[in-house]
Amino acid sequence: MWLDFSSFIWLTAKVSLVGALCALDRTAAFQIMFSRPLIAATLGGVLAGNWEIGLLIGASLELYFLSEIPVGTNIPTDDTLLALVAGGVAAALSGLSSNAMLDAKSLALVVLLAVLPWAVFTRKVDSWVRVRNARLIDEMETRLLACENASAINFHLHGILNFYGAAAVALGLMMAISLLLVPLLLLLLPAWAWPLTDRMLLLFPAAGIASLLYNMNQKRQLAVFAGVSMLLLVF
């Protein structure tokens, strides 16, 4: 049920070190959407050897946190870290022979339920980095007062190290705990509950759609939604 020790260490290190690069796209650099859950979870899956289950988790999670937006000082949940961990854990466990009979959707559901409560933790990590980054202003100003201009201006890039380091440590911690916790849940879940689990994954895309619709101009968008749904049902 559990990964052997060397695979456990290797996978945790791989996801945390490579995944943290992907997480940089979220705030620190570029923002080309490489950090969206659809891509991050697939990357987690690729690193753990099964991109297909990573993609399924990414699609289930993509809309889920979309209604939380980074406006002003609001720090939304870091869905990149959650997606990387969920994709990595699900892909790793799907490769074990003891889980060979397990439906991908059931495994995805259990992994998501075990990983998503980390949402609060990811917001704390993000806030911590942003508080720590404030020190860079003092460093830069001190250097500028000493007329060391070239070295002063590069303090801005030290922020990358802060974001990368925090993401790598958070990913390592979340991966390690989830890799231990999820097999335990799979082991303990009674057999009669399994047939329910594959369809329960529907909850995640449905909750994402609901929260997106709710955050838009409600009456107008609900009318459009109902109209398109009726058209699809008729044709």
Binding site: T27, A28, A29, Q31, T73, R130, V131, R132, N133, A134, L136, I137, M140, F155, H156, L157, H158, G159, I160, N162, F163
Partner: peptide, 13 residues
């Protein structure tokens, strides 16, 4: 936004 912070936000950027 590499060094985004709560104190002066994007000033270093």
């Amino acid at each position: 936004q590499t060094s985004w912070n709560f104190a002066r936000m994007q000033c270093l950027g």
